[in-house]
């Protein structure tokens, strides 16, 4: 089976990999690049655990072919902290107990970051609707919403 050659940047680093046409970006990230922070919960775009940002757009890595990543800039959870310094959202998630099992956490953090980049001052409803594509079965979302609102507050400098 002939494989496609793809070059892209992931979290700012140039990467190259080979993939079958039917392979998803999620499979390439996890299996070829060994970036396992992006999770698979469903493989059909219904849970958001594989949320990544591609050229500034929040997407499900399971709904994009790896071969479509050619020339794209991809951001994953592994690139969210800077060295030892956590992103404010990451810190607030820990402080607010906004994670339990943690399987949905990378996807939710990526989605929340994408929201705050567009809308630094979201309402509770805006947070809830933006995150509707990210399922969490542990928390009931209460502390997640709290953490996102609090991180937004801090990032606005208030």
């Amino acid at each position: 089976m002939s494989r496609n050659h793809v070059s892209a940047t992931v979290n700012g680093d140039q990467v190259e990999f080979l993939c079958e046409t039917g392979q998803t970006l999620l499979e390439a990230l996890r299996d070829e690049l060994r970036l396992t922070g992006t999770k698979e919960g469903c493989g059909t775009g219904d849970c958001g655990a594989c949320s990544v940002i591609v050229d500034g757009r929040l997407v499900c890595a399971c709904l994009m072919l790896a071969v479509e990543a050619e020339g794209k800039a991809i951001q994953t959870i592994e690139g969210m902290a800077t060295g030892e310094t956590l992103h404010p959202l990451q810190r607030k998630f820990i402080e607010h107990a906004a994670l339990q099992c943690g399987i949905c956490t990378p996807g939710i953090l990526i989605a929340a970051r994408s929201l705050l980049e567009r809308n630094p001052n979201p309402t509770e409803d805006e947070v809830r609707y933006w995150l509707a594509g990210n399922l969490c079965r542990c928390t009931g979302y209460h502390k997640i919403v709290d953490a996102v609102l609090d991180a937004a507050r801090e990032m606005r400098g208030g």
Binding site: G45, G48, S51, V54, R57, L58, V59, C60, L63, M64, A111, S114, W130, A132, G133, N134
Partner: peptide
């Protein structure tokens, strides 16, 4: 049409 993620594609 789906979540923000889905609508991104």
């Amino acid at each position: 049409i789906g979540s923000v993620q889905v609508k991104g594609r």
